[in-house]
Each structure stands twice: as C-alpha cells, then as structure tokens.
Design a protein around this nucleic acid. Structure first.
Lengths: 128, 128
DNA sequence: GCATTCAGTTTACAAGTGTAGTCATTACGC
DNA sequence: GCGTAATGACTACACTTGTAAACTGAATGC
C-alpha cells in the first residue's frame, strides 16, 4: 500500500465548529450536528450540510450510510488539529518558539491561576 | 474627538509578512519592503504594492509622502497583533485556557530546552 | 400507488485573499 | 525638453469561505 502523501487540507473556522460537535460525540447525522451548532452560530441546516460535505471532501470527516442518510464521524483527530494549528501560530508569530507566546499571553493577562499551576505541574513533569 | 470605535480589521497571512518587514525596520518604501520579503515569498513588487495598500485601507499601516513616493510605517503594533492572534487561537481551540495549549505543544515536542527554561523563569516572575 | 418529507448534491453568490498586470503621472538623466 | 524609469492607483482573476437556496431521489404514511 502506497504511503498516504495527501497534505492535510486546511480546515476553516466554520468547519472547525462542525468538527467540534463531532469530536464531542459521533457519529452524528447532519441534523444532529445542526442541533449542536445551529443555535450558537445562527446557521441553517443547509449551511451545516455544506460544511459537512466540504469536510468530507477534505477527508477530515467520514460517512457511513445508514438507510437513506449518513452518519458522520471525524477522521481527523482533535489533537492532530489543535496541534497543527498551534504549531502554525507559533511558527508564524514567534519563529517557532513557544516561550514568547507564553510571555505574550501573560502580558495580556490571559493566564488564569489554574493555567499557571497546570503549567507549573507540566513543566515539573517534563523535567523529570 | 469621538472615540475610535473601528473594529480592527483582520490581517491576512500574506499581509502579516509585510507587517513583519515593517516591524523590523520602518519607514520603508514599497521597493524596500519588497527587498525584504520578495525573495522568501517569491512575490513580485506588484504583489507587495497591493498588500501595502490593503494594509493602509485596513489602517494597519500609515503613509508619509516623500517626494513622489510613500514611506510606510506600521500603525498596528506587533504586540497588539500577536496578542490578539494568540488570544483568538486559545479561545477557539482551548476555550480560552492557555494550559492545554502548552500541553499540546509539549506533546508535539515543539518545546525547546530554551522554551522550558524561559517559561520557568517567567512563571517564577509571575509568582513573585 | 402517490404525495409528502427528508437526506444528500448541486448551484449561487458576495466578501476576502493571493497574486499580479496595466495605467497614469512624475522626476531625473542626458 | 524628452524619453525612460519608478511609483502609486486601478483593474483582474481564480480560489476559499460563509451562508444558503434549489434540485433530486428515496422512503414512508395513507
């Protein structure tokens, strides 16, 4: 079997909202996805259908036929996505260095007490 | 004078590259900006000119006439930009919490030794 | 059996983006 | 003085994204 050398296609912000619903619970039908996201985003079912098919063609979501309809499941894993998005940002804004990002968030007071202690724990862990 | 209630317009990735050049050194002429970025991005001068005028209309860059040409300077500050981009990402991917982002980067082995010690120092600083 | 309904597919369309060519003006070299 | 080079302005055009309506085929109720 030849290697899968597809470059993973970029997922837009609206598409990401749909992925979040599927990461939460899957498989879901299109209407079920709409139940999860249409209220908050003020989308119509048609919009969700469009986003789902774009995600399918980007191979981020798989479909399994279930009678006349489809059940949608994520193919792309959440950590894969958050990982690559995070790396993209760090690369683009901070030359690949994470520390300045951290400094930035600290300056913007975007770090909660919980963040601080979790990060301390994480650092201790990494030091072990 | 009425308050400036413009919502800051979003800066695209290509535009960001131009901003980086201006943050590095300014004011610059369009050709000077091109000198800085056209090689790496494989852009023509025309592309840079377009990006510059889009940045001007987005009020991220100011112009000062200098004879027949313009000198461009950043209006948007780098920390403003990196701050809001970072916050956007953290909000979108991690519900506003920074700790999971770092866990993510740690898992992806995107943290260098330097990052770790700088972050430790920063944490100590924040704890003071 | 036939109408209604429901699902996916196709088409639409404006705004933003990446990338650049053409146009018009003006200054400078000779 | 006049051609040429440089510069900003205007125009172009394909692709992505957000948002959704119209279309089509199948299942289901009666």
């Amino acid at each position: 079997m030849p290697a899968n050398n597809d470059k993973p296609e970029r997922i837009s912000e609206a598409e990401h909202a749909v992925m979040e619903a599927l990461w939460q619970r899957s498989p879901l039908t299109a209407s079920e996805v709409c139940d999860e996201v249409c209220d908050t985003r003020e989308w119509s079912l048609a919009t969700v259908k469009t986003l789902l098919s774009r995600l399918v063609s980007k191979q981020a979501v798989s479909t399994k036929p279930d009678g006349r309809r489809f059940l949608y499941s994520p193919l792309l894993e959440r950590t894969e996505y958050t990982g690559s998005e995070s790396r993209r940002l760090v690369d683009r804004l901070f030359g690949g260095r994470a520390a300045p990002l951290f400094a930035q968030l600290a300056e913007a007071e975007a770090l909660t007490e919980d963040d601080l202690s979790e990060m301390e724990a994480l650092l201790r862990e990494l030091r072990k």
